[in-house]
């Protein structure tokens, strides 16, 4: 059983549009292997049925899961590490001088997937400031209950900790738990999790000093992108910082943000009075 050429083409175009990654012809087997678990989870017999179902009734959550299954970035810790470098080099010093010592910094990892982003932020802050656990709270949200539960558990397979997590951070912040690795209780206490659909009205949270909303907007049409950015902005402090994915921008979508270049990445800040 191999994926038909038309269906493979549809997947190729989707992945290219959403992630800029090119799936070369001949990678049909890879698409099959990576999408079969997703098809089964949706109660479908094979990848052909999955492609047909999503093509005829596209939903952002389904297309996101397809792209995530086929692109490897989201399971990596520090790959595309510039938005993390910017946090400790620029954002944290700015926030520390603007806030009182007793004020708790609030950070949001929106669309947290299995939790690598939230715990990467937690590790960086724990290493960068004394008593980070009492001075920072990280909120990790995802639309998928399964992902939220995985994030809350803070357990990762051997293959997952092999993906872009620096070895010194692994030994500092993780312990073995059977055949898996478990993030330290200190880091888990810094991260609060909840289910959240970004495309619907958001629960009361924040206000956030920093928001990581990476590789989410690409899955939505323009009006939904605008609505998401507006809702995110309402949950942010006026001098907060927003990080988007490398292929995403507010430019041409929502003009109430100013773009700040930090090293090789950009952050977006709410424009005053916009």
């Amino acid at each position: 059983m191999t994926l038909t050429a038309t269906r493979f083409d549809w997947v190729r175009q989707l992945v290219h549009r959403e992630s800029a990654i090119v799936l070369a012809p001949g990678k049909e087997y890879l698409v099959e292997a990576r999408l079969l678990p997703l098809a089964r989870k949706m109660g479908l017999a094979d990848v052909d049925q999955l492609v047909d179902a999503v093509r005829s009734r596209p939903r952002p959550d389904d297309t996101r899961q397809i792209v995530e299954a086929l692109t490897t970035n989201e399971t990596s810790w520090f790959r595309d590490g510039d938005p993390f470098t910017a946090l400790t080099s620029t954002v944290l010093p700015a926030l520390q001088s603007a806030r009182g010592p007793a004020e708790r910094l609030q950070i949001w990892s929106a669309a947290c997937s299995s939790g690598q982003e939230a715990y990467t932020i937690a590790m960086l802050l724990e290493d960068a400031m004394p008593n980070a656990a009492t001075r920072v709270s990280i909120t990790a949200t995802d639309i998928s209950r399964e992902m939220v539960e995985r994030t809350r558990a803070g357990r990762f397979s051997q293959l997952e900790v092999n993906r872009g997590l620096p070895a010194p951070m692994l030994v500092r912040h993780f312990q073995r738990a059977g055949s898996e690795w478990e993030v330290s209780p200190t880091l888990r206490r810094m991260v609060a999790t909840r289910e959240c659909n970004l495309a619907a009205p958001l629960p009361r949270m924040g206000p956030f000093d920093v928001v990581y909303l990476r590789n989410v907007l690409i899955y939505f049409d323009l009006p939904t992108k605008q609505a998401i950015l507006r809702r995110v902005r309402e949950l942010m402090r006026p001098d907060g910082w927003l990080f988007l994915g490398a292929a995403e921008t507010t430019l041409g979508v929502d003009d109430s943000w100013s773009r700040v270049v930090i090293g090789r990445t950009s952050a977006y800040r709410p424009l005053k009075g916009a």
């Binding site: 490897t72 990596s76 293959l159 092999n162 872009g164």
Partner: peptide, 13 residues
């Protein structure tokens, strides 16, 4: 065991 992706991520770091 590792995948080629794991080697690539470490080299990037």
């Amino acid at each position: 065991p590792f995948t080629a992706d794991a080697i690539r991520d470490k080299l990037a770091l």
